[in-house]
Simulated assay, not measured.
Amino acid sequence: MVYILVGFFVFLMLLVLLVMHFQFKLFYLAKNKLRILEYHSISTNGFYDQITIKKESLIAQFDFLKMNKYHTMWLSEVEAHQENNIPLPQKSIVLTFDDGFLDNYTVLYPILKAYDFKAVLFVVLGKIGQKIDWGGEFISKNDNMRLMDRTQLEEIGSHIELGYHTYKHDNYAMLTLEEIEEDLKLCQKVIAHEKLKVFPALAYTYGGYYRKKDAKQKALFELLKKYGIRYGLRIGNRINVFPFRNKYQIQRIDIRGGDSFEVFKRKVLLGRKKLL
């Protein structure tokens, strides 16, 4: 009876460790783990919501990353490591910001320069320099919120790499393959016309893509490959195993404006704020 109980306890502990490993990548070496954080807009008036973080909170988070020696990277640098079979630096992290809010130029860019951090900005390419016309409390409270213009997107290049975030902020999960193809064509037309330097990585708007593993998903990934998209980023809230196993299902850790500092630290360390 004692042996049965011990065996059951050992089995239970192994099961817990396996679950923990799946969730948090516990047994992978640092060179095989990549954290990618997801942000959007930054406020300077104390406002915060799901996609808006206070400037003070962002600075506190960057202080944590700097103090703990996290190494910020562009996706183009990550790709160079993968293609050349080079291990990642210790504590590698990619800071990503979606949409291209003007505050990413006025607020984020100076902070990145002060910390000597790098970030990736996923741009809504059909809305460059325009007034933002999709939902969100921060947007509705600031009626004239705009996205960065072409000059500003070029100016931030010392610390910010650009990527795709669709043509007009559409959710790919709601589009047909034909509509997605047209979206990609329009994105590339803007890039060529504006002579922008854009790394061919796509952050799915709203995290939306064909999630079911079937022929339709395979066709989507083939379409992305056809148009030269090398990475597709979802949400997922997990640390990535590196080298990437599926370049079109790379996971990001969603950093929300209402996250406490302790929640932020847990997300960075574990990829999630909860154990299960």
Rank of each mutant, 00 (worst) to 15 (best):
Q50K: 11
E178I: 08
G258P: 02
E179H: 04
S260L: 09
Q217S: 08
F122E: 10
D143R: 05
L270A: 08
H159P: 07
K54I: 04
G207H: 05
Y28L: 15
L34M: 08
Q249Y: 04
D214W: 04
G157W: 00
L233T: 05
D103F: 09
L175M: 15
Q251A: 13
I156R: 00
L147D: 01
S43A: 14
K185L: 13
K55T: 10
F8R: 07
G129K: 04
V190K: 04
Y231D: 09
R146C: 13
Y209C: 11
L223A: 03
F97A: 07
F138D: 11
E38I: 12
I36M: 12
N104G: 06
F261C: 02
F97L: 09
V268A: 02
Q61T: 01
L112Q: 02
D259W: 03
I128A: 06
L75K: 06
L58V: 07
K185V: 14
Q90D: 15
T176S: 15
Y48P: 02
Y70D: 04
L37N: 07
L270M: 14
F199E: 00
D103V: 11
Q152L: 07
E56P: 00
K141M: 12
I255F: 01
P89C: 11
K185N: 11
Y231T: 12
H159Y: 14
F97W: 06
Y209D: 03
D133T: 13
V94H: 03
Y248S: 00
H169C: 07
F22M: 09
F8I: 15
E222Y: 01
G7E: 02
V198N: 06
R272M: 11
E154T: 10
T106R: 00
L18K: 08
Y109E: 00
V124W: 00
K265F: 00
F122N: 15
T72P: 07
L275G: 01
R256T: 10
L224Q: 09
Y209V: 04
I139D: 01
V78R: 03
Y28V: 02
K274F: 14
D254H: 09
I156Q: 03
V120C: 13
V6E: 05
E38Q: 10
I4N: 08
K225M: 00
R266T: 04
E182A: 14
V16W: 11
R146Y: 03
K66D: 12
F62M: 14
L12Y: 13
F97M: 05
K185G: 06
L233M: 11
V94A: 05
L34W: 05
F9E: 02
L220K: 02
N68Q: 11
V241K: 14
L108T: 00
N84R: 13
L121T: 08
G100A: 08
K185Y: 04
D170Y: 10
I191L: 05
L196A: 06
T96F: 06
Q130R: 11
Q188A: 03
K168D: 13
R230K: 15
F199M: 01
F221P: 02
E77N: 06
M67N: 14
K66Q: 13
S158E: 15
L269F: 09
V241T: 12
G208D: 05
L5M: 08
N237E: 12
V6P: 04
S92Q: 08
L184N: 11
Y248F: 15
I180K: 10
G100N: 09
D99V: 03
S92N: 09
K168C: 07
L12W: 13
K141N: 15
S57A: 13
